[in-house]
Amino acid sequence: MTDLSLTPALWASLAIVVGSTLQRLSGTGVGLVVTPVLSLILGPVAGVLMTNATTTVSGFTIMLSVRDRVQWRKAAVVVATALPGAVLGALLVLVLPTAWLQIGIGLLVLIALVLTVTTPRLPHLDSKVALPVTGLIGGMLNTTAGVAAPAMVIAARLTRWDQRAFAATLQPIFMSMGLFSVLTKSVLGATGQPQLPPWWLVPVVIGLVLGGVGLGTLLESRVNPLQARTLALVIAGLGGLAAMVKGLSAVT
């Protein structure tokens, strides 16, 4: 993870800034945008790990500005069941070959996007049932592929979750899922690295996220949240397709 040449490092930095900006504008963006880009640059294991770290920082940072709209009880339910999902995801990362993990990341991103965009109006489901299941699935997906947002979007549709409160509540959920993913993979040795990244990457990621969040704050009155979400989906789709092609080429 530390042997980045200048050009890949710039692309990775740009992905983090753009993802953080879109997340500030629409509630989601970091996982969808950053995961496929970083998995192409750093490899599937290290790329998702870096995405998880970025999501932790971005979720915490954005949460501070929308904390008055966060529905903390719902967030707690999702977070509580995300931990066992993260453990299961880390075990999958530990045993899956790199090429197949790359294919899986690309495929999961593309499937998630299709479900997010094309899922019709779903029947109403009580949040007491939907949210714990969503936390488990989201925790696993976040750890293996860095994308928990589509699972959360489907849960929001099932429970008729108010969009404004939902977007705010996602932030502590993403922060916690990202942290769980980093910790479980570090403890189980599923980081793809013989040792943890150098300490200086932490302030660099924090700085990039803060820059993206600040840019999103400046653009908030000028950019429609739907436009920001659409852009995030387009970027994620292209990145997911590229990640899957790269994985397939390594297998064949």
Rank of each mutant, 00 (worst) to 15 (best):
L49Y: 13
L25F: 04
V33G: 00
F166I: 10
L91E: 08
Q163T: 13
S20Y: 01
S5L: 15
T98Y: 08
Q227W: 14
V251C: 14
L131S: 00
D162L: 12
V17H: 01
T144A: 12
L238E: 02
A112D: 07
A12F: 06
K74Q: 15
V66L: 14
V109K: 01
R73D: 14
L4Q: 03
A145S: 08
I16E: 06
V45F: 06
P36E: 06
P120V: 07
T134H: 09
W199L: 15
Q23P: 00
V209M: 06
L96S: 08
A53L: 15
V109E: 00
L14E: 05
K128L: 13
G211A: 13
I137M: 10
P203T: 09
P225G: 06
P194D: 14
V245H: 00
T21I: 12
T119M: 11
G139H: 02
T119A: 15
P44R: 00
I206D: 03
T119F: 09
V77D: 05
I206E: 07
W200A: 14
G237W: 02
T116K: 02
L38G: 04
T143Q: 10
L208Q: 02
L91K: 06
S249T: 13
V70K: 05
G214H: 06
G216S: 07
A130E: 02
R229W: 11
L113H: 06
V213M: 11
T119G: 09
L141Q: 02
L215T: 13
